[in-house]
Design a protein around this nucleic acid. Structure first.
Length: 545
RNA sequence: UGGGGUGUAGCCAAGCGGUUAAGGCACGGGACUUUGACUCCCGCAACGUAGGUUCAAAUCCUGCCACCCCAGCCA
């Protein structure tokens, strides 16, 4: 299912070329920053990083890119590891960017000695001033021509903690007139008197991503450093660092387009706001596009991987229709989720010619075809059916129950609607039917157009949580103006209905197809007295009123 | 207006000088059905634009247009 892509993507072409002409091996890495939970966008990178390594007989490392202690926390480390494994990937080595702080420092010293790095005393604002603009060249810092010895001494004192945060930086000496702004003497190290979640108080200077990343890659023996498009303009700098540090191993950075999904907020910044401002219950709220949220909602790793394989890899900015994701989920769940009956919005149905107190167990197949066995449901005089499966005055091709109409109750008998009660508000309260004893399921030739799901009167009360997209499509500017404006008020609907008795003991995470209703997952965190089911995705419904 | 990227149907995405321009999602029609599901058939629409090179261009060249990324001591 995942191998249906025959065509090679552009990354595979590069890799194959390199394996032919450079080194006959591949090692990749997945480098999340531990500042949040992994989401479906990360899953794309995961599939590419781990997938490429596997396809070409290499390995992939997991490396936490933790060079900025102001934004990171160890809290996320375990969650990220868990999600990667859940998705089905295993790393060869587990590293932290901070493991390389010592080596980064030594290499910085090396660059200073080579005369291609210097300590700059310019303030942040001055540096911005000196950098120039997109159309005008920058100008050189007055500190750019310091002697090697002076740079060495200052850098050593930076490390020793003699200077205040922001008072100095170590910069690469490249070209202040470069048309590529990233090459205008980028900062390599900044001073930050702050404890790091991995290294504690050992360091008060931290390397920048642009300096640390290529070093980490090169040391780890990474051959292909796959990342998203926004790093394209950083590649010359990446190569510069590898070159200046004189690494034997020269990893190749290849960029690809990140994943966007319709009606889905993928920006970590906004996801964080949703959590911190209480719009959702947490990172694992089933409405979140995080892997933990999707897991709780009932998405399977197989479906996610299949989806990502279908989306493919390219450099074109794109927004994939969530319908494609949902299709993959349905396809996967259709083959594995047991068919059970649930009534989300119940209405009472009385079989008037069935004696009170008489019951009959009827069989329902677990999966179509019957090879997965069956389970039984108790049929009797009083039942529940779905409220929307009955219409007093139905539209044209309504196959469900209507006054005088006939319908089969799944696995049981054909019933005919004889009458119904309505309350003062006009709401139907009870439907009265008669059943045809000659129409027992499996022993009857007669066909009717509609088949309804139903439940006995002793069914188990359950809570159903129906999810709609959390965010409406909007621009970042809109979101900055008024975050609440983007919220979908109907993103969560809670319904109280019933499920088959067997589901009283549904294990958290179990997935089912509630016939004619949709795919649901027993809630992972449910502690309620009655079971809670999250709707993973609805069934396709070709009936339109 | 500097640099780096990207433009193939409603949405993804193959294609690499000669193809009727793959495939998937979505959509429409039909068959089947004890889930209006699934499955199975059938249909569906595209090379940003203007020139040029060539017997032949989505593929090569040039101009133009549109969109994305870069002016953090973030990643």
């Amino acid at each position: 299912m995942e191998e249906l892509k025959a065509a090679k993507n552009f990354i595979e072409e590069f890799i194959e070329e390199d394996m032919r002409t450079k080194q006959n091996r591949i090692t990749t890495r997945f480098p999340p920053e531990p500042n949040g939970y992994l989401h479906i966008g990360h899953a794309k990178a995961l599939c590419i990083d781990f997938g490429m390594a596997k396809k070409y007989g290499g390995t992939c490392n997991l490396r936490f890119d933790d060079t900025n202690p102001t934004k990171e926390d160890a809290e996320y480390v375990e969650a990220i590891k868990y999600d990667i494994n859940w998705l089905g990937f295993e790393w060869a080595e587990l590293k932290f960017g901070s493991d390389y702080f010592g080596q980064c420092y030594e290499l910085a010293v090396k660059l200073i000695k080579k005369g291609v790095a210097y300590v700059d005393d310019l303030s942040k604002d001055d540096m911005r001033e000196y950098r120039g603009t997109l159309t005008e060249a920058g100008k050189e810092s007055p500190f750019r021509s310091r002697s090697v010895d002076e740079n060495l001494e200052l850098f050593s004192r930076m490390k020793a903690g003699e200077f205040a945060d922001g008072s100095r930086t170590l910069r690469a000496k490249i070209d202040m007139a470069s048309p590529n702004i990233n090459m205008r003497d980028p900062a390599l190290y900044r001073i930050l008197h702050m404890a790091h979640h991995q290294t504690g108080d050992k360091w008060c200077i931290y390397p920048m991503y642009d300096f640390a990343h290529p070093i980490q890659d090169a040391i780890e023996g990474i051959t292909h450093s796959l990342c998203s498009l926004e790093y394209e303009a950083h590649r010359p700098l990446y190569d510069w660092v590898v070159e200046q540090c004189e690494f034997e191993n020269k990893p190749r950075q290849i960029e690809f387009a990140r994943l966007n999904l319709t009606n889905t907020i993928m920006s970590k910044r906004y996801l964080r706001r949703l959590v911190e401002e209480g719009y959702v219950s947490g990172w694992d709220d089933p409405r979140m596009p995080t892997l933990c949220g999707m897991r709780r909602r009932g998405y399977t790793p197989e479906a996610i991987r299949d989806f990502l394989a279908r989306v493919g890899v390219s450099k074109a900015d794109s927004t994939v229709d969530t319908a494609m994701l949902e299709h993959c989920v349905r396809e996967d769940l259709n083959a594995s989720a047991y068919r059970m009956m649930a009534v989300i919005s119940p209405i009472r149905l009385v079989v008037t010619n069935w004696e009170a107190g008489r019951y009959e167990d009827v069989e329902i197949e677990n999966l179509p075809g019957g090879e997965a066995g069956a389970h039984s449901v108790r049929f009797g005089r009083e039942l529940y059916i779905e409220r929307e499966d009955f219409a007093i005055d139905p539209p044209g091709k309504f196959f469900r129950l209507k006054p005088g109409g006939e319908v089969r109750l799944k696995g049981a008998y054909i019933v005919k609607c004889e009458n119904y009660d309505v309350d003062e508000a006009g709401l139907v309260t009870t439907i009265y039917c008669t059943y045809d004893p000659a129409t027992k399921s499996g022993e009857c030739e007669r066909k009717v157009k509609g088949t309804l799901h139903w439940l006995p009167d002793n069914a188990v009360p359950a809570e159903f949580r129906l999810y709609e997209p959390l965010m409406l499509t909007a621009t970042d500017e809109d979101a900055d103006k008024d975050f609440t404006q983007l919220m979908n008020p109907d993103s969560l609907q809670i319904k109280h209905g019933f499920v088959e008795n067997e589901l009283a003991k549904a294990a958290p995470g179990d997935r089912f197809q509630f016939m004619r209703v949709g795919y649901f997952a027993a809630d992972i965190d449910h502690t309620a007295e009655k079971p809670v089911f999250n709707r993973t995705v609805g069934l396709k419904d070709s009936f339109k009123m």
